[in-house]
Design a protein around this nucleic acid. Sequence first.
DNA 1: GATTCGTGGGA
DNA 2: TTCCCAAGAAT
Length: 287
Amino acid sequence: MSPIAAAVNAWFRAEGRDLPWRRPGFTPWGTLVSEFMLQQTPVARVIPQLEAWLQRWPSPSDLASSPAGDAVRAWARLGYPRRALWLHGAATQIAERHDGVVPRDVDALLSLSGIGDYTARAVAVFAYGERHPVVDTNTRRVIARAIEGQADAAPPNRRDLAAMDSLLPDDDVDARVFNAGMMELGAIVCTARSPRCEVCPIAAQCAWRAAGYPSYDGPRKAVQKKYQGSDRQVRGVVMAELRATHRPVTPAEVRALWPDAAQLDRAIRGLLADGLAVESPDGYQLP
DNA sequence: GATTCGTGGGA
DNA sequence: TTCCCAAGAAT
């Protein structure tokens, strides 16, 4: 094992947070649900929702037997409600094609709705102990700094997988710990804004530190558009109303939600197209 | 390959 | 206050 991997793993075993999905006996289904929720949503907001979710739907088949709208409502304010729809779809596919058992194979996982490169490998590694490189925003940033000497990661790229793979210890267990450790390091030490290099276990080997912390000069990642007044905000307002109302929301009630009728119309049509809303004779509701 | 998709909290 | 960003995926 490389000196960096050895240091990361020793640090993670000593300093890693006690999170629900790291508890012994946490199920592959629990891991899958947690990974869906953690896509772009911070840990602190996920934890309470995750526990409630698993209480209600302890297995993929349990979720598959509920209407998709129940999943969207239970998703509450985690954001990106399409993930709830995709998770329900994945549960249905697992029930139908995999006997209700979360698959272990990366390609099988990749074929499920809402599962991409990150989530497929995270489930294979953390739920089943398979050996694969897990690449997320944290591991990409740590590699950019410690290995490449850059202040930040370039936009996501297929080469990220190979970069992580080249650092991965040979042993399955060590590789699993290393994946978790790199993510943890990026999450609580090598953070985006104010890295805590004084407590970093690989500060001595860090290329960025050795180079004197040069500022980032690579391609700029796309700037996130303003949320206030955006179509996304309108979709969020409509979805909040659909979640709160256990009967169809009438067109008149929809019109009262937002002053700009054209923007509202775009939101409704988008939600219908995404399957997050369906039309009934009396208005709109969750699927 | 660039865009789109929620929501909330910390700097 | 405003800006940035958070265990991404689909189109």
